[in-house]
Amino acid sequence: MKNKLVVRFLVRLTVFSLVLIVVDRLVGFTLKKIYFNQRVGQFSQTTYAIDSARQDIMIFGSSRAVRHYSPTILSEISGLSCYDSGRDGLMIPYSTAIEEISLSRHIPKLIILDISPRELGIDKTKYEKLSILLPYCEEHQQFIKYIKEVSRYEPEKLFSKTYPYNSSAFILANNSLFSKSVEKDDNGYLPLRGAMTRPEVKDYIKRMTVRSKRIRQNTELAEAKAVNYFKQFLDNAAKNKIKTIVIISPTILNNAFYLDNQTLERDLIEKIAGEYPNVTFLDFSTDPRFNYHPEKFADVFHLNKQGSEEFSTIIAQQIKANL
């Protein structure tokens, strides 16, 4: 009797598991189709950056890369084609992964890495967010070592064909159903609209000062693994003899990193960049053309269209002068 029950349970469990696998594959296949057929939005930008981008200038970084560099302006002034591979919320491990895969396919003339000191700080979310590389792992095995940063068992989880599209359903649905309302990028560039106001900046300074008192009690510490990813990024460029510009783009306050307890990380970026002869380091965080100019910022972290165009012009002139 007992054995009969066990056998019955095991048979049902096996059949159910098979059904589940089939349904998982069907859903996964559908999501894959939708994902790789995206024509707008950040998924399509990432797919383009990974599989197709062959421009002369390649920009890497997080949301500040996406929002601050206009490839059109950079191309017009420098005479070189340009693509912005940055992605919102992603940091140095992601930049390194995308750079590695891009360089295996194409060697650009110039690489721009937009980096923020917080990317070298202790924050495990920068690794968790590498899960956005999951849809590409089937085609690009090089990404496996990066997704292991998300969790030890990430490669095994890829047995599920639905899992790579985890947490993407809303964006996929939105970009497919309302593609016309999704803002189209200009070679990866997505400028932000609107402008901050003086009272908003004042309020921000007040909040940052209060916060600073609290967080400045913590020991400032860079994260070794993040630093290694930064070095690896620069190594990849150096190995391929590519001129590289490491940029800290403008901030609304001129002491943002001091208030944020990130001066050590900022100095580390400069020091490491200085170790590579092919690398130029540019810090715009204390540039008076941007500091305390709320009309050039969409929010406390990002330039708006006006600010990013002015900034892109400055960068383009630097490129023209140095290349």
Partner: peptide, 11 residues
Amino acid sequence: ILWIIVFGVFN
């Protein structure tokens, strides 16, 4: 189960 795979947070 599929809802968990699609919408769950695994980290």
